[in-house]
Amino acid sequence: MDSQTKSNQPKTSQVKTKPKLNSKNQSFKLQANNVDVFYDDFQAIENISLDIVEQSITAFIGPSGCGKSTFLRLFNRMNDYIDGFLMNGSILLDGNDIYDSSINVEELRKTVGMVFQKPNPFPKSVYENVAYGLRIQGIKDEEYIENRVVESLKQATLYNEIEGNLEKQALALSGGQQQRLCIARALAVKPSILLMDEPTSALDPISSGKIEDLIHELKKEFTIVIVTHNMQQAARVSDNTAFLYMGKLIEYGDTQKIFTNPEKDRTQNYITGRFG
């Protein structure tokens, strides 16, 4: 995939709810246009259009089954493996349609990394976990791999905690450390986007706090999209929030606005815990 494509400045004529831009120079990294998703006869996503701002954090919130994880997984084509999956509309990454037949999905996933709800390290050393993505890309240069491993572990704020012991077994780490290892593993292949599907729901508050701090640091370099059931987490970490309900995008925009004075009653009822 060509990541050096044309800039996608906000188009004011589009009838979409608008995300907040932190600076005038920010553009849209991902753009979903009139997206429908079906699993056989069931429509999981209904005509969602939404732009995701580069180097920002976007949170998807909504009750279980609202389609937020399905929508997240569209960005790295993780839904392709599900039987009966069908998508209409388009998803653009740096202006290129990632569902175009010319797109190499493996290449796409180098650009769009993903972190899941439960930490899922391989039963290998810390080093081999982080090196894994580089090795399956066919990289043989061990010095380069080692540099990437160390740099990724530092970025994921794990390197100091394991005191540089890269041979430590991944499964011997705490849950929070394992999740940061998974983030380091995703970072090693130099993605530009990180998708996170409830990355702290299995963690204690201290570990969650460390991941949140890390997410905040990573946005300087990466575009982050996070699905969370934790309203306070969405409010704390994200720049923009999208509220989905029954497959529809109800409201999308500046997180501060959503959590202080949402436009829609349905959003207010959800974030204040009165339904959902």
Partner: peptide, 9 residues
């Protein structure tokens, strides 16, 4: 309760 929106106001 960490109130938000109208509750926080």
């Amino acid at each position: 309760y960490n109130p938000v929106a109208v509750d926080l106001r």
